[in-house]
Write a protein that binds this DNA or RNA. Structure first.
Lengths: 113, 113
DNA sequence: CAGTAAATTAACCAATTGGTTAAGTACATA
DNA sequence: TATGTACTTAACCAATTGGTTAATTTACTG
């Protein structure tokens, strides 16, 4: 089966550890050990999370001697934001419709007194 | 362990079947069998996907005789969009920084000729 | 060359996911 | 009451996820 870029991006964002890692990377590049530091988790576990972010294209890495600093790549996040945006109007309309329905119900209730 | 609303929302969005279901629900309420129709999948499978959307709070359902129509609830989507928005500025800055770096590199390359 | 630092790989494990088939429930209607 | 429609539950299964420990790789440094 094939997994789209969007699938991977949303999946990457569905874990609080990974979102926190992205938040930290937004502050600037970081090494694995620095990314791991805030969490009560072993290095290999964090390494796996980082790999999920890499596979989603959200993080790029380069070699610097033993180090392999991670850099945030925001492009896939834009794609995700665009997907949400694409539906925002419809959702807004939907929301308005619900609001309207609620008003309707209040009116009926009042009349019924 | 505890799973946040945001976790559930992003996870729900990470599957193309579920995104398609949401897209269909954006057109209006739908029954399970109608939601299932576009997919080469059994009803219980679609029922499970719908449950994931319900658990994420993206879908509400009501009883109507045998039927149990599903309605889109866009609120959690707003939360997800807000999360992305919250980091957009930082990401934009990050992107500009990369662009700047790229310009720098071009300049150096040119000077090196 | 020995030691240390940063990260990865391998092997394992329990829980979850995403699908199936088969059986069961909830209602409406002939 | 029997039948059909809409949906759910149960039981099962393979693959994936999210974690562990132990060993290995990569590269600098004394």
């Amino acid at each position: 089966m094939q997994v789209s870029q969007l699938d991977k991006t949303f999946f990457a964002l569905s874990d609080p550890t990974r979102r926190a890692m992205l938040a930290q990377l937004a502050e600037g590049d970081a090494l694995l050990k620095d990314l791991a530091e805030p969490f009560d988790m072993t290095l290999p576990a964090v390494s796996k999370h980082l790999k999920v972010l890499e596979d989603a294209g959200l993080v790029k890495r380069t070699r610097e001697a033993q180090r392999k600093p991670a850099t945030l790549d925001p492009k896939p996040l834009k794609e995700a934001a665009d997907w949400l945006e694409k539906y925002r109007e419809i959702w807004a309309a939907n929301f308005d419709r619900l609001e309207g329905l609620l008003d309707e119900m209040k009116k009926i209730k009042k009349e019924g007194k």
